[in-house]
Simulated assay, not measured.
Amino acid sequence: MSDNDEIQLFRDMVLRFLEQEIIPHYDDWEANHHTPREVWKTMGQAGLLLVDLPEEYGTAGANFSVAQMIQEEMCRLGLHALATGYNIHANIVAPYILNIGTDEQKQYWLPKMASGDVLTALAMTEPGAGSDVAAMRTTAERDGDNYILNGSKTFITNGNMADMIIVTAKTDSTAGAKGISLFLVDTSLPGFSTGNPIHKIGQHSSDTAELFFEDMRIPTDALLGAEGQGFVYLMQELPRERLGCAIQAIGHAQGALDLTVEYVTDRKAFGQRIGQFQNTRFKLAECQTELEMCRALFEKHMEKFARDEMTVIDAAMLKLAATEMQLKMVNECLQLFGGYGYTDEYPISRFYRDARVQTIYAGSSEIMKEVIARGILGR
């Protein structure tokens, strides 16, 4: 079976799953600002979690392109909040464990993650440290066979429901970025708590949390990778993380364009369809062109990633281009809906709200520009 055949086979299955298990309930989840925990088990049972990891962990053993396609289809259908949680669990946390973890850690966590019995999160951002990871204040101090974890994190996707969280913490407070380590934190242990769910402008049904660690004892075998190498690992995993952000942007923009084409084809004003006005036609032409340019850039970097040649600078350029395109395009699409686009009745309004965070999380556009500029100037 070719890669394209495999992707099409999975796409058909994914679309059936989303249409039967997710879309009928999604408006209620958005209204309640909550996605039920059982959804993750349902996705696990359908074989949609960790699809590109080795089959020994109970996964499909598919190509990485399949994992990207799942996110693209979720976003194209307007399920951006679900895609964000999926990206964290299946596309970010799982590879960290696969690439850095011990055999024991992989055997213990990955099968449970693939089945949906364990939901995961990644905790980096703190109230006073976002993109500046080296400024974090959460600490993990060695005490015999344990580390004692103290601190807090915020804006953590999947945080309230997560059974395990990769937590970044300082194991050497004097070493800056070189003093950061990663830990697989079991949230059932004493000393862990969460605040009230964080309500946001968009992606309402995405579980976003504050986390607190108070004298939390975690075993030394919860250390992920080597002590003090956390920042290095974060940089190593950035290309895959930002590929996920980019495909979400592309899928979401495509979905907004699809909705808009349908609307302007039917809606009339001044005796003709909106799609017959030159301004509408030119706006759609610009949107389609910018979308295809970003898709070409994405495909280029997917090929580089497959060859293990994608750099942090590549990831920054892709993330910057795709998410800025997404915001611009969804804004243009909503404008063509006129007043109806500003109502909850029309899905384009949710596309508009959900897109806004894409240029902020996983590294803001400003940080992406700084990373790119350093690559150009050498500093």
Rank of each mutant, 00 (worst) to 15 (best):
A177K: 14
A123I: 04
L50K: 02
L297C: 04
T102P: 08
T59P: 04
F337K: 05
V357Y: 08
D308N: 14
M43K: 05
K200P: 00
S205G: 08
G78M: 10
G116M: 00
R356L: 12
A362M: 14
K369Q: 14
I313M: 11
E290H: 09
A209G: 06
E262S: 11
E21V: 07
E324N: 05
L291M: 09
E30V: 14
D117Q: 10
E55D: 05
L284P: 06
G341I: 02
A296E: 15
W40S: 05
D258H: 03
M310K: 03
L318H: 02
W40V: 05
W109K: 09
L334W: 00
S181L: 10
F10W: 15
G230W: 00
T42S: 11
G159C: 07
Q8A: 14
K304C: 04
I97W: 08
P197F: 00
L211F: 04
H204E: 12
F337W: 14
A121L: 05
E332Q: 15
L297W: 04
L18F: 15
K170Q: 15
D172T: 06
M1F: 10
E126G: 04
F351G: 03
L122K: 08
N196I: 06
P239E: 08
A226G: 02
M310D: 01
A373F: 10
E72R: 15
A135D: 12
I7A: 10
L9K: 15
T311Q: 08
I97C: 03
A226P: 00
Q68W: 03
H204I: 00
M293G: 02
R242C: 06
S349D: 04
K268R: 13
T359Q: 00
D186L: 06
T168R: 00
A62F: 01
T194N: 10
I218F: 07
I88Q: 10
H301D: 12
T323C: 13
I100G: 00
A140C: 10
G244K: 05
R350E: 09
H252C: 00
F64Q: 06
S173Y: 01
Y361M: 11
L377Q: 11
Y342W: 12
H204R: 15
Q254L: 11
I166C: 00
G151L: 07
R356K: 15
G338Q: 08
V264W: 06
